[in-house]
Design a protein around this nucleic acid. Structure first.
Length: 642
RNA sequence: GCCACCAUAGCUCAGCAGGUAGAGCGGCGGUUUUGUAAACCGUUGGUCGCUGGUUCGAUUCCGGCUGGUGGCUCCA
């Protein structure tokens, strides 16, 4: 009998029967490994476990617990779900069902939309399929045969997908029991390999995400190597729920979005407004330090301005309707740029004046679909931490590098340490400006990133029509990623507004312009900050920093003294003089996530000391008022995170 | 905007196979002078989101609207 040789990850070589599959290899190594295995990596490519191995291949068995296995688990579970749905609702047509990062979904075209109530039934049917432990098999077939097959079972969507698969790619079908699905794979060897899954929600989703198309029923679910993993994930969802900024916003009295005021419009309560103001103050301070000039622009502008800027041409669907002012149309601003440009144009500028950096916390209004609104994260009126940098072509590199450094420093100040950076380049079809200008700008952006040693991904063709951009996303405390900073070139507006500067030789030139926002929007950034910190803001941002808790009425006078001393030192302090037990006052301060509590009883009043308690950590012991104040001041000055 | 679901006291929620509602917390009043996450007693809170319809009668059933949630799309 012929044999083949395969190399394992550790470099060792094994001899197997000529027709051996990856599973046979796993079995040959150990029964335990075989049991745990769900796929194999052959010559760097992840394939099905029952795929035959070629002689000389380098093979690694993928077991359920490996990170690479998760996507397969999710994807295979999606198939099991589709199978279950087809069993329960034979009229359902399957469409697509990919794995996401920790979840999967499958979209179905249903005669009647699925609801939450259908989920337990589907889950039960899935359990059955898993118990049946059906073998999952892959077959590669000629396109026509595949099409004929899906046509025979009325899966129209699959036909549409097949037509879009590039010719050079092989078309494969995965089958388990009575269910077959067009799929690239790989998949688990049999349905019994799934041991922990849960369906999470149903939602509507347009076929191919296009509003013109039919609304499908989407079911989201998740799958994990074991029950423990599933439980951990579900706990994480719970944790995220606890951090939900909408809930904390109410609990901590930060803000409200009021029905009578209007959807997507934020009312900032005193605590939230204070938090916001602290961020604004810091923002103004560092921008002045970084050479920005602060400008202020109006909330509305005449139609002519928006005509010139092109917004009425390409952005109208996001703008609110015109208002008539003495026979003239005015529009509420969706962006600040035209105003900043008008400020630039008010004077003639020499090359010596550049770069000019105009910054404004500019509140803009954009029409967002009602269904897209979400707490502070997506609203209709929001404040951009906007700035426009106007410079000469040879100042570009320097400006971009400064800007990147500034952005990272700024975000780090708020405790964010992990970033994802994206460079988006010129779109294929629609763009303004000369391709050469794009090349210069893109090169400048790229060089800056490389020079600064920043890891980034390139989103080829992902730029706006008016220029390439760099986006920075931040990762929060529970690993979620949020888009904040955006640094965008603009070849459009300088042209439209005929911006210019006078060069050394006296000739006029068009300056380069960069739009940038570091936080993106204040509303959204604060929303992210709330979720990142779970409402436990760093001391420098906490609306109330210290709560003074006299134990009995006789301690009130000394408590007042302490509160006054702290207040005079610039600490935001409140005294809880109610006739309540200390435990009760502490509990309340804890729930309001006030960073420090100062407890004052006979002992403290007698010796002129303080008993200090830190939120969540508990009793820090007794210290002098001076020591405590110094501790606070250090923590504030260093903007230390909780 | 579209699909599904949801809307009961300030908050969290129970209830009603149709006969106009209840708890805990909070608020208020009192007693307690209190030591590191909830003292005790009393009391006040609701056009059951709005609006039509069915019905002798609707918070409950049906329709419309408004708002919210999860998605789709877009993006700060």
């Amino acid at each position: 009998m012929n044999t083949i040789k395969v190399t394992l990850k550790d470099g060792s070589v094994r001899e197997l029967a000529a027709d051996a599959s990856a599973y046979d290899l796993a079995l040959d190594i150990s029964d335990g490994l075989a049991r745990q295995s769900i796929a194999a990596e052959v010559n760097g490519k992840i394939v099905d476990l029952n795929r035959k191995i070629d002689d000389g291949a380098e093979v690694r068995i993928i077991t359920v617990n490996m990170p690479e296995a998760h996507e397969i688990l999710l994807h295979s579970t999606a198939h099991i779900m589709a199978q279950a749905v087809k069993r329960l609702y034979p009229d359902a047509k399957v469409t697509i069902g990919p794995a996401l990062e920790e979840r999967f979904y499958y979209d179905f075209d249903m005669p009647q939309a699925l609801t939450e109530e259908d989920l337990p039934r589907i889950e039960a049917e899935m359990e059955k399929i898993i118990k049946e432990n059906q073998l999952v098999s892959r077959s590669e077939m000629p396109r026509d045969a595949v099409k004929a097959f899906f046509k025979s079972i009325n899966e129209d969507y699959k036909l549409e997908i097949i037509d879009e698969i590039p010719d050079e790619e092989t078309v494969s079908v995965y089958s388990q029991g009575e269910f077959s699905d067009l799929c690239r794979g790989p998949h688990i060897p049999s349905t019994g390999k799934i041991s922990a899954f849960k369906l999470l929600s149903v939602a509507g989703a347009y076929w191919r995400g296009n509003q013109q198309n039919k609304m499908l029923s989407r079911v989201y679910g998740t799958a994990w190597p074991d029950k423990k993993g599933l439980k951990k994930y579900l706990n994480r969802l719970e944790e995220a729920k606890k951090r939900d900024h909408r809930r904390l916003g109410r609990e901590l009295d930060l803000f409200e979005i009021n029905e009578q005021v209007g959807m997507g419009l934020v009312l900032w309560y005193p605590n939230g407004a204070l938090l916001r103001r602290l961020i604004e103050d810091y923002w103004y301070k560092v921008h002045r330090q970084k050479g920005y000039e602060l400008v202020v622009s109006p909330h509305v502008g005449k139609a002519d301005l928006w005509e010139t800027s092109g917004h009425l041409g390409f952005y109208k669907e996001s703008m609110y309707a015109a208002m008539d002012v003495e026979g003239q149309d005015y529009f509420i601003k969706p962006m600040n740029c035209p105003f900043h440009i008008m400020i630039y144009k008010s004077h003639q500028h020499s090359y010596r004046d550049l770069p000019i950096r105009y910054a404004e916390l500019g509140t803009v209004y954009r029409y967002e679909l009602s269904g897209a609104l979400h707490g502070l994260m997506r609203v209709r009126g929001f404040t951009q931490d906007d700035a426009h940098i106007i410079c000469t072509p040879d100042q570009l590199n320097d400006e971009v590098e400064k800007l990147l450094g500034f952005s990272f420093d700024y975000l780090k100040t708020f405790g964010f340490t992990e970033f994802e950076v994206y460079l988006s380049t010129r779109p294929d079809e629609k763009f303004v400006g000369a391709p050469e200008s794009w090349d210069i700008a893109q090169k400048s952006l790229k060089d800056s990133l490389v020079n600064m040693g920043i890891d980034f991904k390139v989103d080829e063709g992902g730029g706006a029509f008016y220029g390439p951009k760099i986006d920075i996303k931040i990762k929060d405390a529970i690993g979620r990623v949020w888009q904040c900073t955006t640094i965008q070139f603009d070849f459009n507006l300088p042209e439209r507004f005929e911006m210019k500067y006078v060069d050394a030789d006296g000739s006029f030139h068009r300056p380069y312009m960069i739009h940038r926002a570091i936080m993106g929007s204040l509303e959204r950034f604060i929303g992210i900050l709330i979720e990142d910190t779970a409402g436990r803001f760093p001391l420098w941002l906490a609306p109330v920093q210290v709560k003074v808790l006299p134990i009995a009425d006789r301690h009130f006078e000394y408590s007042q003294e302490i509160a006054l001393m702290l207040e005079e030192a610039g600490i935001r302090v409140q005294t809880d003089a109610r006739q309540e037990k200390t435990g009760y006052k502490i509990r309340e301060a804890e729930l309001k996530k006030i960073p420090y509590m100062v407890i004052i009883g006979d002992k403290e009043a007698g010796e002129g000391s303080l008993s200090v308690r830190k939120q969540r950590l508990g009793d820090l012991g007794t210290m002098t008022p001076q020591t405590f104040l110094e501790r606070l001041q250090t923590e504030i000055a260093t903007k230390q995170k909780e």
